[in-house]
Design a protein around this nucleic acid. Structure first.
Lengths: 413, 413
DNA sequence: ATATTTTTTTCATCCACCAAAAAAAATATA
DNA sequence: TATATTTTTTTTGGTGGATGAAAAAAATAT
């Protein structure tokens, strides 16, 4: 019974992240406050199994670094109790602005948030071409962020970090891009290019992982430690969070759910292989198979296909049904392999409606090996357009938090 | 520190969450020595980034608890160097005996090892029936272990732990068996039954996870932190180790690779569902599909099927080829999802030969989404018969290590 | 106005870890 | 053979982070 407190966790986390013990304690408290939204020192002590004395020490450090702030008492809607009232703490607002930016096929979207995750400014810019030279991409990032920052005091120079989401195989730790659909070249050391052009810290991550981050910090996965996020759009992506950490795999490139094989020698996929899940479920696959129905190319959207199916078009229904069946099988396999707390389907309402129908869910139930415990919850999260940029911002906040708690230590020393 | 009732509760929590700082340090050093086989204090300090002073302190504690021992100098085959010679440390031998026991369909195998993993005694006992009442199973465990222990000084009373491998859905933390093919009943709290009947600590685990443990401690996964172990026998099992820890999933029942779906509305599986990987790859599936070839029921083995294929029997070849294709697709999907350092195929030589042929490996390469990094290594490990029992013993050693390092702290206080 | 309750801070202490010095145990060299 | 050198291990004294206990603070209850 020597140890029911949290010091052992601190060491484990410290080993993994490279932060020293003090910074790790600060980060744990910060994340606890973020998870709770608002928390008093007593709450934090209970949640992290730290002594009140430690919490006072750590929070005073965080406050001096303007990472958290006290909530004025009258703001808390607490029923008056006896005793000294708790002082709620929350993440600092209006400071440490972070830019999240997503490079898509035809547009760049930028979202600027403060440390609390509150929106500060946003913008979307069309892209002339879907593939760019690395330098061109970096310049695009800089100029788009700068334009959105014109609304923000201090401009781009005042940002605490810029976080970039890219489709493809991205090593977030080294900021090395093995391959991305947005770049004309493979194997680009984007990190050094970014450092040369940008006035602040920058981060790069695979876009599905970003959405997982967004769900973890701001969405349907708050407080969870084992969950999966499936994104369906042009392709199909997967973010895996196990034990509270993004699982990026040995080669650092994340999971490729969209290219798991669901049919031996099946349909041709854009990746060059055959039988990929994405080749049945991705929006480009649906539209490919629905050419006969959606003759007008400018009407060739998933929404139109769904509408046709609802009007009773048998062929449209067939295409969507098959996508649903395959998708249900894929989801069931994820559950069989990972047994997560929750699976979150993230994406545009119209684009994923057919993927969480009763038919799909019953397909999942039929295919998950039965345990007496109930099936993991499958939730749908309809983000707005800025889903990806918000994910990038979430990553940015996380990284900036780590930098700040580390630098607080520097100042003291 | 002298509360009588509360402290027990606190201890339970501490047990569930982990160990105190001192015990954790001891365990880290212990694992470092186990990984290395033999290591001097200097080696340990370098490997764990601890100061020599700390290593001396920790190792002296481990030696006083008879968990490690010094290797007499002449035993080390070191070239004579200048300076005080290093004293190698290794796990203690001949002490802390642990029994690993596997309950299979038709037999019980028991393996007793010492703290170092060295075999001390073993035995195999036929089982009259493949399913038992929980009490009957516990009694079988006790009597089989006791019989093998008759060769061991001290007998069953002197064992540091008994570790039991069961097929099915087992929650290793609570020792609760949701379902097992060896039990006539579902939802059995095996832990309390075991505690009532056995004179020492006992542990329960799913059999595929056990093999993963065995590979990690003694096999092809020594020193790795992210790997998968696939077992092929009657069924197909998967053990997942991520970040050095077994991933057991939210419901604690481990991964069900054998029942991931590979064909929509495919072949019927013993689990009642359709299209499971196991229904194409498991030995019972092969034999089911090969009934026309292997007419003599006593000759109905995978080995005979492989032999028939080698003799040019087209039907046999077809059954094996399909199994190989499906298996290759399954392996590729594991790589796409987990991106492990290594995948280990564990099992009997004859039973898995057709699953790592060139054809299967090229199927894997065709189905893994290409990265510039090389494919994860796929290794085959042919264990002897006692693979499962050795896995159970590996788990036992791990658990006993945790108990011992914790109790060392107790004695000091 | 005083007592009570609860939260937060202060303070002395504990414990793991460390750097540096000392000791130990070998080889190299004169 | 005696002494110097090298390397490992142990001892010693000190440091920093977390802690328990006591004090302070800030509210309600009487």
């Amino acid at each position: 019974m020597t140890e029911d407190r949290g010091s052992e966790h601190v060491r484990r986390i410290a080993d993994a992240t490279g932060l020293d013990a003090r910074a790790t304690a600060r980060l744990r408290v910060l994340n606890c406050i973020r998870d709770a939204g608002e928390a008093s020192r007593t709450d934090i002590a209970a949640a992290l199994r730290l002594s009140p004395a430690t919490v006072t020490f750590v929070t005073s450090g965080l406050m001096s670094g303007a990472l958290i702030e006290e909530v004025a008492n009258q703001e808390t809607g607490e029923t008056a109790r006896r005793g000294r009232p708790r002082v709620a703490l929350r993440l600092a607002r209006g400071v440490h602005h972070v830019a999240g930016i997503k490079i898509a096929r035809d547009a760049v979207s930028v979202l600027i948030v403060d440390f609390d995750g509150t929106d500060v400014a946003k913008g979307e810019f069309p892209l002339a071409k879907s593939q760019m030279e690395p330098r061109e991409l970096v310049e695009t990032v800089r100029s788009c962020v700068a334009r959105v920052c014109s609304e923000v005091p201090g401009g781009i120079e005042a940002l605490a970090g810029i976080s970039i989401g890219l489709a493809g195989q991205v090593d977030a730790n080294t900021r090395f891009v093995h391959w991305s659909s947005s770049l004309t070249r493979r194997n680009v050391d984007l990190g050094s290019l970014l450092d040369a052009e940008l006035p602040c810290a920058s981060f790069v991550e695979n876009d599905a992982n970003l959405v997982a981050k967004a769900e973890h910090l701001f969405g349907e996965a708050r407080g969870l430690t084992n969950f999966l996020v499936v994104t369906v759009e042009y392709g199909v992506g997967l973010g895996i969070v196990l034990d509270g950490k993004l699982h990026r795999g040995e080669r650092g490139c994340g999971a490729e759910f969209g290219h798991t094989k669901v049919v031996l020698d099946g349909a041709q996929c854009q990746c060059g292989q055959a039988g990929c899940l994405e080749a049945y479920v991705g929006s480009y696959a649906l539209l490919r198979d629905a050419k006969g129905i959606l003759k007008d190319p400018k009407d060739a959207t998933v929404m139109a296909l769904v509408a046709a199916a609802e009007r009773g078009n048998a062929e449209a229904k067939c295409v969507l049904d098959r996508a649903g069946q395959i998708f249900g099988m894929g989801l069931a396999n994820l559950i069989n392999l990972f047994d997560p707390e929750r699976i979150i389907l993230s994406g545009d309402r119209q684009r994923i409606a057919h993927l969480h129908s009763d038919a799909v869910m019953s397909q999942v139930r039929r295919s998950v090996i039965s345990v007496d415990a109930p099936l993991p919850e499958i939730r749908v999260h309809h983000w707005g357009d800025e889903m990806w940029a918000r994910g990038a911002a979430a990553l940015g906040i996380e990284r900036v938090s780590a930098l700040k708690v580390r630098d607080l230590g520097r100042d003291a020393a």
